[in-house]
Design a protein around this nucleic acid. Structure first.
Lengths: 225, 225
DNA sequence: GCTAGTTTCCTTACATGTACAAAAACTCAC
DNA sequence: GTGAGTTTTTGTACATGTAAGGAAACTAGC
């Protein structure tokens, strides 16, 4: 039995044996991001850190965007913890959506990836299941339940994308933005409500109203017929 | 009167006279985008088309992102038409939000810019006013009305960003995505609802349910206290 | 005219994502 | 062993956004 192939794997695959793996790439990418932020994550740096060349990465990952999606899935799989769900199906939906939102809001990089059409990390599927099931248990037909989940996802992804981008713009530079300037000279005759709210606009839009809107959306989805 | 400065402008500004203007830049950028899509819009091409150099653009525009924001405002100002608004304040909100959504959905470039914290083109302010006013007229205090508008914006921006990105991914390549693959082998015991909906998932999520979700959100915002 | 000051523009340079093609490292059939 | 086939890696090259510094074109004061 001495001439046997490696005991761990029969070793049949032809071609040049890989020196790096997708897992290694993702792990190193995660380290780079947690250490220095997502802006430090370049294909060249990543390649250097795994001891390879930039183009070698492209045999394990289609492009940088896919790498970020994989990073998001990786992140979700290791931070998403299933919460205790209440019995009331409506509350179940709210709690599951809030859990997703909290996890995503805590990792504000990957905003670009949030534009994925779904949160389809395997570990996130449980949450999607709970939401859809909560809708069904509340009386919605399955089709409406899926649509309801979609609406929640639009709202959740939109909230995070909009808020983190706004925050990024604010820290980028202290220059008066075009938008602030628009608000300073409003015509109270043409736009009375906005003029009325003008000075309170910035603090108002800075408030965290995610759960308010979420509850409203869930309520609306469940009562409309 | 022969030695007078130009009749159009007294000409007092010191410094080298500009050869290009922000308006010219935006106009040319709009032409490039409408002719060849947003992918054709590079700083170098834009500079060439206005007869200048790339870096000269940066004296009229902070960076490419600001250029895109300006393009969006430009687009909004010339395509947003104020619709007839119904008397019922709730319907007013729905109609105004739908108008914004339609205009934005029709121009799927600028997805990146949609992540702006608001739609603050001057021409869009009227719509924001109608939404806020509709909420107030329905009995919400101003503060809640502004929050309501915010929720609508999250939902609307999220819908457009998610949907257009999904569409882009689909046309990019016909390869089986990771997400499709996840759905093909679901454990019906752990995720019964998803397994139940699995084969219908793609068509279901392709349906346009914006107005359903919008109505639900508005209803929820108006009935919750 | 000349100099100083100001604004706009241009040249050069760099970091980045990634296309393309060739080289390298392996398996298998002979 | 040799050659064909396959997969991974590498080297080179290009387009892009944009930072940095200097040149150019003007005005105002002398």
């Amino acid at each position: 039995m001495a001439g046997m192939p490696q005991p761990t794997a029969p070793r049949k695959a032809p071609g040049r044996p890989p020196r790096i793996s997708r897992e290694e790439i993702i792990g190193t990418a995660r380290r780079i991001v947690t250490e220095g932020g997502v802006s430090r994550l370049t294909m060249r740096r990543l390649a250097a850190e795994v001891g390879s060349t930039p183009m070698a990465l492209y045999h394990h990952v289609r492009d940088k965007e896919e790498l970020l999606v994989l990073l998001l899935d990786d992140y979700a799989s290791r931070t998403l913890r299933r919460p205790e769900l209440p019995d009331d199906p409506r509350e179940r939906v709210v709690v599951a959506a809030t859990a997703i939102h909290e996890a995503l809001a805590a990792c504000p990089w990957i905003v670009e990836v949030l534009t994925a059409d779904d949160l389809m990390s395997t570990s996130a599927l449980w949450f999607v299941e709970q939401i859809v099931d909560g809708f069904v248990a509340s009386g919605l037909p399955l089709e409406r339940a899926v649509h309801g989940y979609r609406s929640l996802w639009y709202y959740t992804a939109g909230e995070i994308v909009v808020r983190t981008t706004a925050a990024r713009r604010r820290t980028d530079d202290g220059r008066t933005t075009y938008r602030e300037q628009v608000f300073s000279d409003l015509d109270p005759d043409e736009l009375p409500r906005l003029a009325q709210a003008a000075d309170r606009w910035a603090p108002l839009t800075a408030e965290d109203t995610y759960s308010d809107g979420l509850r409203a959306l869930v309520d609306g989805l469940l009562t409309s017929r």
